[in-house]
Amino acid sequence: MAKTKRTIGHSLLTKESSAGVLFTLPFTVGFLMFMIVPMGISLYYSFCEYNILSEPKFIGLDNFIKMFTDDAIYMTSLKVTFFFAFVSVPIRLVFALIVALILLRTTKVTGFYRAAYYLPSIIGGSVAVAILWKRMFAIDGVVNALLGKIGIETSFSWLGDKRTAIWVLILLSVWQFGSSMLIFLSALKQIPSNLYESARVDGAGKIAQFFKITLPLLTPTIFFNLVMQMINGFLAFTQSMIITQGKPLNSTLFYAVYVYQQSFEFYNTGYGAAMAWVMLALIGAVTGILFATKKFWVYEGGL
């Protein structure tokens, strides 16, 4: 009896799958505790009237109905977020690709430049950079000072004008092109050079080479970057929270910031949770649409 027990214990220990389970445990436990459980709770709250201070009260679909019928600011935040994601992501990707193409050629200083261009991606999402950005675009900030130096004296309020404020945030986001750039860079290196050689032999110029070889072979990478950055774009929070808090006139009110405001400033936490779940559905839908378009433009065949 005791012997069989030991064998079972032994076999459990030596089984390869046990090791797998063991090693993934830190992630699994964290994922369950800090993702799945809170998500479940937030799903429950989304059907509740919940003000944090007192117990949640079940109200069915009221939060969702209110969102789409009786909350103009919600619609504004949705528009702002879509605008931000659909404008900043393509610009950022184009930028990343251009810089990646430039840095593809190896010289003595490319290593330095790669690191330098990657830096904003690491620090760009931080509070410190957001504050720096805010100061740069202040009325008495460095941007206006530089404009003054080149003869354009101005006390224009970049963050105070609803036409420009969102662009300040988009610019910050575009500036963080480093991680996409690195991914492009490694993809570019994998394109076999014999393709370019034969193209040259056939008389194709640089531009034709780019559009006929480089771009088609990059489409899987572009697709990956697009999906990931799009999701990030929808979830943008720090920039708006630190720099503008949605001001002026809600023209920079990102969805996530509005969720935060409803949840923790107005104490409508149930409503905030409902909004977060709608965002989940929206991101799912947008990602789904992107995947659906994949077969029309992404090259997946072998070489």
Partner: peptide, 26 residues
């Protein structure tokens, strides 16, 4: 598999957000 992959990416990232609404609850 593509659909699954898509759902997975979507849910992991949104989890960050949906969880945000109640991360204090853990």
């Amino acid at each position: 598999r593509k659909v699954l992959a898509m759902l997975l990416i979507g849910s992991v990232f949104c989890g960050m957000m949906a969880g945000c609404g109640s991360s204090e609850r853990a």
